Amino acid sequence: MYYENYHLGINIIWWALWAILLIWILGIPYNTSRRHKRHTASYILQKRYVSGDITKSEYYDKQKILIEDGELKKT
């Protein structure tokens, strides 16, 4: 009687859940903003300054170049 289309409804829900799961797994594998931040020139410059590879004056000189090139906003 009322159970004729029961399997159709379950099938649609089942496939919708699989589609959502697949989109979630493939669509959100990485935090893109964090990954992008690691490869910017300003981030690398900051890491070199903090680790002591460059002096304070070298840091500010290179930061000024980045600001002039438009890669870094002046703060």
Score class of each variant (00 low, 15 high):
residue 63 Q to I: 09
residue 26 L to F: 11
residue 59 Y to T: 01
residue 24 W to C: 02
residue 28 I to D: 01
residue 44 I to Q: 15
residue 43 Y to Q: 08
residue 58 E to K: 04
residue 53 D to R: 08
residue 38 R to G: 14
residue 75 T to P: 07
residue 50 V to W: 03
residue 13 I to M: 08
residue 49 Y to F: 15
residue 45 L to V: 03
residue 4 E to Q: 13
residue 73 K to Q: 13
residue 16 A to K: 13
residue 33 S to H: 12
residue 35 R to S: 10
residue 14 W to M: 14
residue 52 G to P: 03
residue 68 E to N: 07
residue 53 D to K: 06
residue 45 L to H: 05
residue 72 L to V: 08
residue 60 Y to R: 02
residue 46 Q to D: 13
residue 57 S to A: 11
residue 47 K to T: 12
residue 39 H to Y: 08
residue 61 D to V: 04
residue 24 W to N: 07
residue 74 K to P: 01
residue 25 I to M: 01
residue 22 L to W: 10
residue 63 Q to V: 09
residue 62 K to R: 15
residue 68 E to F: 07
residue 38 R to F: 08
residue 55 T to E: 05
residue 10 I to C: 04
residue 47 K to S: 11
residue 30 Y to D: 08
residue 68 E to M: 09
residue 1 M to N: 05
residue 29 P to L: 02
residue 32 T to Y: 13
residue 69 D to C: 09
residue 49 Y to P: 00
residue 11 N to D: 15
residue 59 Y to L: 05
residue 6 Y to P: 00
residue 31 N to S: 15
residue 10 I to R: 05
residue 39 H to K: 08
residue 8 L to K: 14
residue 8 L to S: 11
residue 31 N to V: 07
residue 63 Q to G: 00
residue 44 I to N: 14
residue 3 Y to C: 03
residue 64 K to A: 12
residue 5 N to S: 04
residue 40 T to Y: 02
residue 44 I to T: 14
residue 62 K to G: 00
residue 60 Y to F: 09
residue 34 R to V: 09
residue 20 I to H: 02
residue 50 V to N: 03
residue 41 A to P: 01
residue 74 K to S: 06
residue 19 A to V: 15
residue 69 D to N: 15
residue 20 I to P: 00
residue 33 S to M: 04
residue 15 W to M: 11
residue 16 A to E: 07
residue 11 N to Y: 15
residue 63 Q to P: 00
